[in-house]
Computed example of a mutant assay.
Amino acid sequence: MTRRRRIYEGKAKVLFEGPEPGTLVQYFKDDASAFNNQKKGVITGKGVLNNRISEYLMSRLSEIGVPTHFVRRLNMREQLVREVEIIPIEVVVRNVAAGSLSKRFGIPEGTPLPRSIIEYYYKSDELNDPMVSEEHITAFGWAAPADLDDMVALSLRVNDYLSGLFLGNGLRLVDFKLEFGRLWENDEMRIVLADEISPDNCRLWDVKTNEKLDKDRFRQDLGKVEEAYQEVARRLGILPEGGPSDVKGPKTLQ
């Protein structure tokens, strides 16, 4: 396999030098983590499934005009993406009370929210990804006001579209996390959706039973984690034939 220079390795993915200037290869691992990396494990086949799920969702969003870094899937575990300058802010969109929101405000999990709520978190493992406000983001220069406006508008558009898409497949989009980047083309810059969209960063519940079909099964030791990811892929019609078979990762240059 082609030897590539490793650019960055995160908890769930590795970024390698792309075949063309301005591109990267995003490799999906089976590694799983929770609670800011305090809990670690492996979800067999997760990387293969997340690659396919994220490809499908990013492609659908692109079709409705949401700009993304996604170019195309390369194989079972890799996809070609545009190189972007990641904005160090995680945008969380919440439709139903769950996770930290339930704990912070004492709202029973599963309570529908009066409207979709957007929260911001500063990307920093060392600081445990603290929640921040628009004032923090603009004052510290993490994003300009215009950038933040674009991120919010895109997040709400993604929420509207994905909520309907998942609902049509018997899934409730409880909440999800998005990341954005600055894409430079000549002298022009635009904000685009980056990272991934998968059961790793979406809470997805069965609409009839409220069964959790996402990484909460790993966080909460509920079991059948692999089966949950497979079920999401199956409902979207993209489960690879024969299940999430594996491929070897690319060789890297240190």
Rank of each mutant, 00 (worst) to 15 (best):
K251S: 09
G164M: 06
I118W: 11
F35I: 02
L204C: 13
I86L: 15
G41M: 04
L74A: 08
L171T: 15
T138S: 14
L127Q: 02
A98F: 09
N36Q: 05
I118S: 09
G168I: 11
N51K: 04
V132S: 15
E185A: 10
L156R: 15
I89Q: 10
R217I: 13
P244R: 03
S102D: 12
C202I: 06
I137M: 06
D246E: 14
T111D: 12
W205A: 07
I191L: 05
A143H: 12
N50F: 01
E20N: 08
V71R: 04
E241H: 02
S116D: 05
L173N: 14
G242L: 06
E226P: 01
L101I: 11
W205P: 10
G164F: 07
V207R: 13
M151D: 10
N50M: 04
P114W: 03
P67T: 00
V92M: 10
L49F: 10
R72Y: 02
I137Y: 03
L162I: 02
D149C: 11
G168Q: 15
P19Y: 01
M58L: 13
F180G: 06
R5S: 11
Y229K: 06
R217Y: 14
E78N: 13
M151C: 04
R94I: 02
D150H: 13
R6D: 07
G141K: 09
K123T: 13
V207Q: 11
K224E: 15
S155M: 08
S102W: 12
Y122P: 06
L80V: 05
K103F: 06
S124H: 11
